[in-house]
Design a protein around this nucleic acid. Structure first.
Lengths: 314, 314
DNA sequence: ACAAAAGTGTTCGTCTTACACCCATGC
DNA sequence: GCATGGGTGTAAGACGAACACTTTTGT
């Protein structure tokens, strides 16, 4: 990716490199998955912008992901651009990374790339089986510790912030604040990337550089987007059962939804229409197959699947 | 800003430049304003990233805006990164621009910079005085024309898209789609930047390069943000009347709000608290001064001012 | 028959919207 | 007094959460 850059002995930066990074998300078997490259501390698909060849940044991303993983992307949106001076690259260049979120239907990737469960990296974000164990066993105590490591006003500020982003002291757990949660844990020096050499599973799997942060941001973005744009359908095949749809939404939001109300919400919103065909093999009564109604985009200003509030806890 | 770059005679790009761009927004006298630099085709404050000196992109932005306009920014969030190969720069470098949205209380800027009414650039976005004249007199006919310039399926696709983003044929006008509207007008070759040499006032004032596009995106972002984060208060002084608050929200959303319900929404949401002090000189009964309650951030997951739906039209 | 999952109906409480009305000031 | 804007009450309706219940399959 680009010219070789040696560590600069003078410590000053006089060159810059631009790369694109993709958080490619799919959902299969009720698990949200993210496309990674490499082994121990995997990274997200990343590649240099071809200054002359890539007409747009988005097309650079599509080219790069195709080259590295063999996957053609569908829905793509720009997420964030990272350009801090100290990003742990060991390069003498200033590295600017333009990160994208992409949603695809899962297909087998090629080369060194593979799908991993997104919650491996952020295990405290998955409430589908009740409050996640790492949250109460590991995160909360660490937070308490961090609050008590300071005193007076500083402690109040910390307690306040921890309460807001982790849903404590009367604040609700807000699924969209996944980035704020990660950033707080990072600042605490608690996540493996931030210096700690050991990698306790409760703290989630590490990724290269600041890629885990990008994943946290992507998760928050998807969760928000679900509410008001029909992006779930990018992850489903053309025909699906309502329960299948619900499972995908649950996987991404990290919550369980009330199935009866979910169905109603969906078809009252006019998001889908039945095909008349059915899926047997669901274990019980066959489920009707539905398809996405493209027309809703014009009928309603913000068509999304509508997520409920989370139970307040802690 | 950075090294000089000549037009490259070979037509291939082998160098890159990074800059930060700020859409600095304020509201005064019920008008949303954006900070601009220069005269005829003004630009947004823009400056090169100091590879070695700027620790983060955000700090680069704050430094740059301070240097160019003398203003210290408060709330800042990253908006988008532009990096298309053809951005009309006449430079032989690939120009990457990281755009930020900033909200400030208006103060007099220094040097070559000045505040301009945001709706000068996007006159079809302001519904406060009823449907904006440029929309019906100029935009809609141009859209119709554009649809009819194609035929068959292509015409249907165009009609559909025009309907969605401009709130026609049963679609509601969605205030947050300001970028999509601008992009459509741009693709139509209708806005001055896109080749047209004349500058009809109905089409809005031109800006340098693609800066007007960035303004359109910033407007959409602010409008969305209003709904679910208490960002309005960044634009107000510490104490304000509820009507004052309403005027600011109206200025940004480009709509009129029902005052009685607006008040209730605000203080039912616990966003503000009365100070007991009053503002005479409002023309009628003195209005109580309020202040923002910072605590709401912890109490509610998405505290915003809550905008109503717009009346469907066209 | 029974389990399992799909799908429907109904109630209840909350939030949104609209309308009517009262209050406090300046002229 | 009356115009002007600030501020409150209340009722109708939309919407979400919760619960009970019926339907259709496989074993």
């Amino acid at each position: 990716m680009g010219p070789d850059h040696e560590r600069n002995p003078r410590g000053s930066l006089d060159d810059v490199a631009i790369e694109v990074v993709g958080v490619v998300v799919a959902v299969t078997d009720d698990r949200p998955r993210v496309l990674t490259v490499g082994g121990a501390a995997p990274r997200l698909p990343t590649g240099a912008l071809h200054l002359s060849g890539d007409v747009t940044l988005e097309r650079a991303l599509r080219r790069m992901v195709l080259e590295q993983t063999g996957l053609e992307l569908g829905y793509v949106e720009q997420l964030y651009t990272l350009g801090d001076r100290d990003r742990g690259t060991d390069l003498a260049v200033r590295l600017i990374s333009v990160a994208y979120l992409a949603l695809v239907r899962e297909r087998e990737p090629q080369g060194d790339s593979q799908w991993r469960d997104l919650y491996e990296f952020l295990p405290w974000e998955d409430f589908r089986g009740g409050r996640p164990a790492p949250l109460d066993r590991s995160v909360i105590p660490a937070l308490r510790d961090w609050v008590e490591r300071s005193d007076g006003d500083a402690a109040d500020v910390r307690r306040e912030r921890a309460g807001i982003v982790f849903g404590r002291d009367g604040s609700p757990w807000d699924i969209e604040r996944s980035l704020e949660r990660y950033e707080l844990l990072y600042e605490m020096g608690w996540v493996p990337e931030a210096g700690a050499r050991q990698d306790p599973p409760q703290r989630g799997a590490a990724m290269a550089l600041d890629h885990r942060r990008i994943v946290a941001q992507a998760l928050g973005r998807v969760r928000g987007k679900l509410r008001y744009r029909p992006v779930v359908f990018e992850l489903l095949s053309d025909e699906f059962t309502l329960t299948g749809l619900q499972r995908v939404v649950e996987a991404l939001s990290g919550t369980r939804l009330h199935s009866q109300n979910f169905r109603r919400l969906i078809d009252r919103g006019g998001l889908v229409e039945g095909t008349g065909r059915h899926d047997t093999g669901t274990g019980g009564r066959p489920a009707e197959l539905h398809r996405f109604r493209r027309e809703v985009v014009r009928e309603r200003p913000a068509p999304g699947v509508g997520l409920p509030g989370m139970p307040t806890s802690g």
